[in-house]
């Protein structure tokens, strides 16, 4: 019997294939950066376009040669703000309830219910914004105040979409705080509220911050709700009851129509896309970094 190393071609073939599968995701990233970057560069290289004005211009009117991102960016920030206005306080409260108050049995019921909320397709949320939230806002504030398309409605509904995300990430962060800290607080005569708010919450702060950042990133990249409810047409306004198109909404509307390749309109979408990609990527990287730090403290 020989103990010599045998060559196993099948084995290495499989390993090679598996490596390809793993490395494939790198190709995706490279593809995103290359393709979107290439078109974006074509856009910035166009004589009609002024890179400085892209970031500072208050008008986005491709037909007039005006490419200022601010109206789109502003609308994105407004919807994001309204989304977090709903999602952060509610999501945090739900997270605290799940991790500090709910019995295990109740938790086993509540979490899947929240998962359902998170699993509903975003186009359904868009429908909800348009057919429920907007009429509600118009009822509350008056039809002459609230337009049919407005950023508030889209943002608030987006908050409902992001709420379960914050709740579940928040709950993870809170339950990662060791039990011994809670016991220490109780043993000093703290109430459940004081234990939760003054000991557990601060100890989980970085995890909660990570949840918040992921929520913001999600809101910035969210598309269908704003495409349906926020308004079709760039509009630089701080009035949440007026329609204004976000970055994602603009991309969807323009690319859904007839678009010819190699036009400046086509390229401009990729410039917006690139901005979107880098904003969400950096938000995600920051949150991952925070989570990793947080883990090191408690593991």
């Amino acid at each position: 019997m020989s103990l010599r190393r045998r060559s196993r071609p099948g084995e290495s073939l499989i390993q090679g294939f598996l490596f390809f599968c793993g490395a494939f995701s790198i190709l995706t990233t490279v593809g995103i950066v290359y393709e979107i970057g290439k078109e974006a560069l074509l856009f910035f290289g166009d004589p009609e376009v002024n890179g400085w004005k892209f970031f500072t211009g208050l008008k986005w009117q491709p037909q007039a040669g005006e490419f200022g991102i601010l109206p789109l960016l502003n609308a994105t920030l407004m919807t994001t703000f309204f989304a977090m206005l709903i999602a952060l306080p509610l999501g945090l409260c739900v997270a605290v309830y799940l991790s500090e108050y709910a019995s295990p049995r109740l938790r086993n019921w509540l979490k899947p219910a929240l998962e359902i909320l998170a699993g509903i397709p975003t186009v359904v949320y868009g429908y909800f914004a348009l057919t429920f939230m907007t009429p509600l806002l118009r009822l509350l504030f008056g039809k002459d105040v609230v337009d049919i398309y407005n950023t508030a409605s889209a943002g608030l509904v987006m908050g409902i979409l992001i709420l379960p995300l914050i709740a579940s990430m928040g709950e993870d962060a809170l339950s990662a705080v060791p039990r011994s800290l809670r016991e220490a607080a109780y043993a000093l005569g703290a109430t459940r509220l004081e234990t939760a708010v003054k000991v557990v919450l601060p100890a989980a702060l970085s995890g909660l911050a990570a949840a918040f950042i992921v929520g913001v990133s999600r809101a910035v990249g969210e598309t269908m709700i704003v495409a349906l409810a926020a308004g079709a047409g760039p509009n630089f306004t701080f009035n949440p009851f007026k329609g204004a198109e976000t970055m994602t909404g603009h991309i969807v509307r323009i690319s859904g129509g007839d678009l010819s390749y190699d036009s400046i309109d086509y390229n401009s979408l990729f410039a917006i896309g690139m901005l979107l990609f880098f904003v969400t990527l950096s938000l995600n990287l920051i949150s991952q970094q925070i989570v990793r730090r947080f883990r090191e403290v408690y593991e």
């Binding site: 995103i32 979107i36 990249g221 990729f270 896309g273 979107l276 969400t280």
Partner: peptide
Amino acid sequence: GVPSIIYGM
């Protein structure tokens, strides 16, 4: 975590 619309592009 990349927004789905980026995949569309």
